[in-house]
């Protein structure tokens, strides 16, 4: 087993051309990024609106839960039959599945902002937009990015499954390997997909840490100390 995996990774054929590792990794990354951007463009404004105004929170949480319960494979195959195009079907599926975590993160982030802080901002004469961008968004940023991280994990996983309807990327190794019972290739695909997810998650975790305002980080550390004391 281990031998087959090592053979696969050391075979230079697997590192070149349209089916080589670099191409597949870049494809996979490309799908993830494209879907992430499209999903953010849709989900972030909705999350900000609902979180800021408090209107439609129940609807948002409810519909988010329904989408979360959608089986990935069912959605992708359904969309493929509808559009009869692997890339279009897969990207739409990816976007749909990435929306709930981003939406939930944005909404939860704004909800978690201390009411007293928002009240003070309003009482000092900040208008709605000033309150949103100067106070609520910076404080909510960690949770918003937490939502983005979850979305990315979801996207890496779903893009692999979408190989079933013909999408490129790392899922190809998994499914093509299974089809011809080449376990070396299957395992290599699994390892690469897992590695990609882990690396992306670590990078985003670092970004998340870097973007949290210092004062908010201190406040969180203080709250933790109080709990443990």
């Amino acid at each position: 087993m281990i031998g087959e995996i090592i053979d696969w990774f050391t075979s230079s054929a697997n590192w070149q051309g349209a089916d080589g590792v670099p191409t597949r990794v870049l494809q996979h990354l490309g799908y993830v990024l494209l879907a992430l951007v499209l999903a953010s463009v849709i989900a972030v404004p909705i999350g900000l609106y609902v979180g800021h105004t408090g209107r439609g929170g129940v609807l948002l949480v409810g519909s988010g839960n329904v989408i979360r319960a959608l089986p990935t494979l069912g959605l992708v195959t359904f969309l493929f039959l509808l559009f009869t195009d692997s890339d279009v079907a897969a990207i739409i599926g990816l976007v749909v599945l990435a929306i709930p975590p981003i939406l939930a993160g944005t909404y939860a982030g704004l909800q978690a902002v201390d009411r007293a802080v928002v009240d003070a901002a309003e009482g000092m004469g900040m208008r709605g937009g000033q309150r949103l961008w100067q106070i609520e968004v910076p404080i909510a940023l960690p949770l918003v990015l937490g939502g983005v991280r979850n979305a990315v994990l979801q996207l890496v996983a779903t893009a692999a499954v979408a190989a079933y309807v013909g999408l490129g990327g790392l899922g190809r190794y998994l499914l093509d390997g299974l089809a011809i019972l080449d376990y070396g290739e299957v395992a290599a695909g699994a390892i690469l997909t897992a590695l990609l997810a882990i690396v992306l998650d670590v990078v985003l975790a670092a970004v998340q840490r870097a973007l949290v305002p210092r004062g908010v980080r201190l406040a969180e550390a203080g709250a933790k100390k109080e709990v443990s004391a």
């Binding site: 201390d114 007293a116 802080v117 009482g123 106070i135 910076p138 404080i139 305002p213 004062g215």
Partner: peptide
């Protein structure tokens, strides 16, 4: 206000 409501990020 109570608890001051200071902006934690500033």
């Amino acid at each position: 206000i109570q608890h001051a409501g200071l902006f934690p990020h500033r």
